[in-house]
Design a protein around this nucleic acid. Structure first.
Lengths: 102, 102
DNA sequence: ACATTATATAAGCGAATAAATATATAAATA
DNA sequence: TATTTATATATTTATTCGCTTATATAATGT
């Protein structure tokens, strides 16, 4: 319970979850959108993964992350209350940096 | 949203909320149950209050805290998933340290 | 007014956390 | 096999957090 809330008590991780609500993303796409270093993204994803809020799936050289959190009955409502990030995903696609292989 | 989750990402504060689910408590009662210093309890209560998860009410020399959190649609479910603390309250009463003035 | 009890705030210390830099692993491709 | 691209881990440093001790404020009672 503590680990779950720790995972969500960071601005960047809440933003990552809002982005994953739109669609699955790989690390390099998150680096592009969030404008932080790749190791920083990886460490955030590890925390979210340890808290069982995301799942990872490898596709070729990329690792895609998707929302999970099915074990927390309130997580769904938390996700709903996050602001929409569809605009940021749109900009990623417009910039031509969306990974297409998936 | 970050502040809300930070407030809940501590074992002691989750325990305090579980205790308040049973009934309103004042600081000195929490000190007795939790076996930590009075300033430590006050500091936890300030964080919970800043996150709008508890309300305070003065009654004579005591300050009683009660659950709030009405602005978070998921908080109710989080509370439900906390373990029952009624046994600890029962022990407090048995020890004669329950504040009765209220 | 003074002493007692309850609570809050401030300062300081050790532990946990976040982020950057450097390095390692893994897959794809020439 | 060597190189490039993507991701993970390790290390270091700076910040944050929780707790304690000390002090301040507030209410009660003598």
């Amino acid at each position: 319970m503590v680990e779950y809330h720790k995972a969500l008590s960071d601005k960047t991780r809440l933003r990552i979850l809002a982005l994953l609500k739109v669609e699955d993303l790989c690390v390099c796409e998150l680096v592009e959108i969030l404008q932080i270093s790749q190791p920083a993204v990886s460490q955030h994803m590890r925390k979210l993964k340890n808290a069982k809020l995301v799942k990872e799936r490898r596709s070729g050289q990329w690792v895609f992350y998707s929302l999970d959190g099915s074990m927390y009955p309130f997580f769904e409502k938390v996700l709903q209350s996050l602001p929409s990030a569809s605009e940021e995903i749109k900009q990623l696609k417009a910039s031509g940096l969306k990974v297409l292989c998936d």
